[in-house]
């Protein structure tokens, strides 16, 4: 397997890092909200998913 590095403009390390961090943070926010926040309504609505996905539930 060969992997050629990307050299094109617009794919430099710095130009990737910021959008990647932003997307990572949004993703984490989604998981935190649906998996871990203990607010009652959210907990009840996501209850089965939390159990089935292995999050600590209650």
């Amino acid at each position: 397997m060969t992997a050629k590095p990307m050299t094109a403009a617009g794919a430099s390390r710095a130009s990737v890092l910021f959008p990647a961090i932003a997307a990572f943070a949004i993703g984490f926010g989604l998981i935190f909200m649906s998996g871990l926040v203990q607010a009652e309504t959210l907990h009840d609505a996501a209850h089965d998913v939390r159990h089935a996905t292995g999050f600590p539930c209650h």
């Binding site: 990307m6 990572f24 989604l30 089965d48």
Partner: peptide, 28 residues
Amino acid sequence: LSVLFTMMVYAGYGLMLVALMAVSESRG
């Protein structure tokens, strides 16, 4: 509701995964 929240959880996982893929790809 379970379907909705499962999609949200995996959308979150997807975003985190692709963000890391992007960083990795920018490093070759």
